[in-house]
Simulated assay, not measured.
Amino acid sequence: MNTRLSLLAAACVLALAACGNDTTPADNATPAATPSDTAPADTTPTDTAAGTPATTPTTPGSDAGTSATPAATPAGSDKPAATVDNCSTVIEGNDAMQFNVGSITVPSSCSEFTITLNHTGQMPVVAMGHNVVVSKASDREAIAAAGMGAGVDGDYVPADDARVIAHTELVGGGGTTSVTFPVSAIQGSGPYEFFCSFPGHWAVMRGSIQVG
């Protein structure tokens, strides 16, 4: 009897010990992560210019390979063309140191051509004389420089100068003069110009002459 009671008591002790060591799985589980803790960080860049990409200002005419050098202005380009009739034309020069035309086109059907100059001013030849000289454009300045030595009496044109294709005499206000020359003389390698060789006039009183 005593032996049974002892065994029963021992069994109860073991059972109580086992119950004391039992743990709830929930007590040892790792707490669930909060969604906000594990969400990936927002890596989208913030627009700093309202979504508009930066652009580099473009200067007009700054394209690569574009030359900034302007084209040369043709002689007399601001004046009208001369009226040509029957292989001749009449042009005017005034006291304001100007021709009234900027170009002369000689018809290719003409074998000779005549230019008549009317001085519409009033100043004397020594002060505001005008003439018409025809030459290559590249020879104009040199002819005018050499012509200074000829003076008024020599029409400010160098004598026997092969660069001079044709020239009129020098006239003052109210005067008229003319010159006729072969059209073949201005059909070579140009360009060709007509100009006044009076000192200082040759730089502004000029225009183009060509066969058309």
Rank of each mutant, 00 (worst) to 15 (best):
V157W: 01
D153H: 02
T116K: 09
P107A: 10
P80R: 05
I143P: 04
E141L: 10
T69H: 13
I143W: 03
I104V: 09
G147M: 02
T114H: 11
E141D: 12
A145C: 00
S109M: 08
T114G: 10
S109G: 14
S138H: 00
A166L: 09
G121S: 04
D139L: 00
G65D: 10
Q98N: 05
G151Y: 01
M128A: 13
A82R: 11
A162Y: 09
A96K: 13
S138P: 00
P124Y: 05
D95T: 03
N86M: 14
V90G: 11
V164A: 09
K136G: 02
G129W: 03
V164M: 09
V132P: 07
M148H: 07
A68V: 12
N86L: 14
I104G: 04
V126M: 14
G147A: 00
C110T: 03
A145N: 06
G149R: 08
V157S: 06
S109L: 07
S77A: 15
G149K: 07
V90A: 14
I165G: 07
S103C: 04
A145W: 01
I143H: 01
N131F: 03
A145P: 00
F113T: 10
T83G: 02
G93T: 03
T83C: 04
S111K: 15
A96D: 14
V164E: 10
T114E: 14
I115W: 15
G149T: 11
D78T: 10
G151V: 09
T120H: 08
R140K: 06
E112G: 14
A72E: 14
S88W: 09
G121E: 05
T66L: 13
V164Y: 11
T105D: 10
L117H: 05
E112Y: 15
N94W: 03
D95M: 01
V106D: 06
A127H: 03
P80W: 03
V125W: 02
T73E: 15
D155Y: 06
A150D: 08
D139H: 00
P107T: 05
